[in-house]
Computed example of a mutant assay.
Amino acid sequence: MTPITEVEGRRVALSNLEKVLHPATGFTKGELLHYYATTADVLLPHLRDRPVSFLRYPDGPDGQLFFTKNVPPGTPGWVTTAEVPRSEGPARMVLVQDLASLMWAANQVAEFHTHQWVVSAPEVADRMVLDLDPGAPATVVHCCEVALWLRERLAADGIEAYPKTSGSKGLHLLAAVAPTPSERVTEYAKGLAVEAERVLPRLVVHRMTRSLRPGKVFVDWSQNAARKTTAAPYTLRARPAPTVSAPVTWAEVEACRDAGQLVFRAADIAPRVQDYGDVLAPLLDEGRAGPVP
């Protein structure tokens, strides 16, 4: 029988609590649910009002991985959903608005991915993202070097950037921007990536072509496209260990000298939040959103 628990007045089914999902550490589904419950205060503000795509891994990272964008069958009626535009026609997606819907969604065993816009203004971005992806033998150390250059370049345009780990091997830079059509933000982000490659030719590549990427950092600007999503802050990732897309401070980026320095697991996040709070909280302040040049 599937256990039923009450979360903020909602009945939520939580299943297979002893199932091991991250085999490198024996991390179970029960531990995954506990992680999301205890991280909700900092995670939910970054999900709220943003349609969520789920990268599901119900049998762990070695099992089947698949994206769920439409509202899944069996979604409780109290979970908020919204119609969003798609090239093939409107679709309905989930909004994770509160602790109850977060726990229901976490029970699906998924990474949380969001658009750079909120549901009230589809395809009008209020965030920009640059995904720094190292091609071996490059590592996150090289990503940090690129991130520091991008921070200064963005600051020159009046835009303040904030870093987080990807939860895999790279870094994400996020910035709050004044509401701007996603197409324009994508164009601006691409221009930054091209400029970074011109200034740092031995370190950066702006094209996705695999043959160009070994030993360099691919600055992926394309995730600003209206239909694309990026791993949300604080989401667990479908990796052998329960790594997290964790906000980091610029001091940590500046001090990074080893690829292992910026790897954070579920158990690391509560102490970090206690020490730093939500490093990405400024992204939630509309007053800090800079205009896109």
Rank of each mutant, 00 (worst) to 15 (best):
D268G: 06
L212K: 15
A251I: 14
R265W: 00
P61Q: 11
I269F: 03
R56C: 04
L262I: 07
V199S: 03
G277I: 10
H142C: 08
S87P: 01
A155F: 10
D278K: 12
D268R: 09
P179D: 03
V219P: 02
G260L: 01
P293G: 06
R198H: 11
V79Y: 07
M208F: 12
A24I: 12
E252N: 08
Q108L: 12
E18M: 10
Y36G: 01
T186F: 08
S245A: 15
L17N: 03
A251Q: 11
F218K: 08
P137C: 09
V204M: 09
S211H: 14
W117A: 04
A125C: 06
A270I: 03
V129I: 15
A226M: 10
P282H: 11
V253H: 08
G60H: 03
S87I: 10
E252R: 15
A289M: 03
P179L: 12
I4N: 02
T249M: 03
H113A: 07
V118T: 12
Y57K: 02
G170A: 04
T5H: 09
G135Y: 05
L154V: 01
D49K: 03
R210I: 13
E252I: 09
V42Q: 14
E195L: 04
V129D: 06
T243H: 09
S120V: 00
A106Q: 01
G191Q: 10
A147C: 10
K190A: 04
W78D: 01
V12E: 05
P73K: 15
L14C: 07
K19T: 14
Q108M: 02
A231W: 09
T235F: 07
A175C: 12
V199E: 01
V118D: 05
Y35G: 04
L171C: 08
S168D: 13
A40D: 04
V205E: 15
A178S: 04
P134T: 13
P72A: 09
P3M: 05
D131Q: 08
A259W: 11
H115C: 05
L43V: 02
R213G: 05
P181V: 08
N224F: 01
D98M: 07
A231I: 11
W104N: 00
L283T: 06
H115L: 05
D126L: 08
H142R: 15
L132I: 04
